[in-house]
Nucleic acid binder design. Structure first.
Lengths: 131, 131
DNA sequence: GAGAAAGTTTACGTTTACGTAAAGGTAAAG
DNA sequence: CTTTACCTTTACGTAAACGTAAACTTTCTC
């Protein structure tokens, strides 16, 4: 027997609304089984949902996430398609590397800002002491 | 003399529309000098714009970017405000660390996908050769 | 001084990613 | 048999981040 999930199972686990999950399905990012009307999610669906949310944390649109997730299992396997897919993958990787640099930059800025704050606190502490 | 920029200077340099730049001003992220009606941007304004765009690449909303940029120069310097500011800075840093993990994850997935593509190309090449 | 180039404001339009009701089906518990 | 909980579809509403068009001023350039 394979584990399955209801829509509210997933909404609870990932702290999102069922509305959002149905919306992702509407946009073609998920396609769960049905038992009558009700949606039944497999662990594969759950993984796809995790990937969608990871994409969101990285600022991707749903469409971009869909494209990327589709890259993970090459559908059309002729040479031309594989080559364009490799191209897309490398584009994505270079965008991720840009994001890495951006994170480093912002992290540095925040570290500096934090240091200035701590410095300011230190100074005001001394000020109080000298009164 | 200090270097200044026109709105189209900046729009060209960063490949964005003047509409976007005015929009950022409208939202309180920029506040350039005026010579009559025309906007005159300082190098500080230019830096702020760079920070805004970096924020966008990381998926931040304009409001979030505004908050973060404001963190860089502590305005109110009383102890309470400094402490809440330090709190916000640390929250941001932990979000950035999550993004780092996400990038590592996605980068790994893309590497694997690329490898499978290359593998598939290799196989098809052999197939051709054996004909 | 006439036209082109770049600037301005005002305002309505558009896409994305859902939120939020409305109106109900289904199934187990009491 | 009704309440309760969870599920469904349909559909209009909304915030963010601009795009786009209109109508006008300012400033070079010839």
């Amino acid at each position: 027997m394979t584990t399955t999930y209801s829509i509210s199972d997933l909404s609870r686990e990932f702290a999102i609304t069922t509305r959002a999950i149905r919306f992702y399905e509407d946009k073609g990012l998920l396609s769960p089984e049905r038992r009558g009307q009700a949606r039944i999610y497999s662990s594969g669906d759950r993984t796809r949902l995790k990937l969608i949310l990871r994409g969101k944390r990285l600022g991707l649109s749903l469409e971009e996430s869909r494209e990327i997730i589709d890259m993970y299992n090459p559908g059309g396997s002729n040479t031309g398609q594989l080559n364009t897919l490799i191209g897309k993958i490398r584009e994505r990787k270079s965008l991720l590397q840009q994001q890495l640099r951006d994170i480093e930059g912002m992290m540095g800025d925040l570290d500096a800002a934090e240091a200035r704050c701590l410095q300011a606190l230190q100074s005001s502490e001394n000020t109080v002491n000298t009164l």
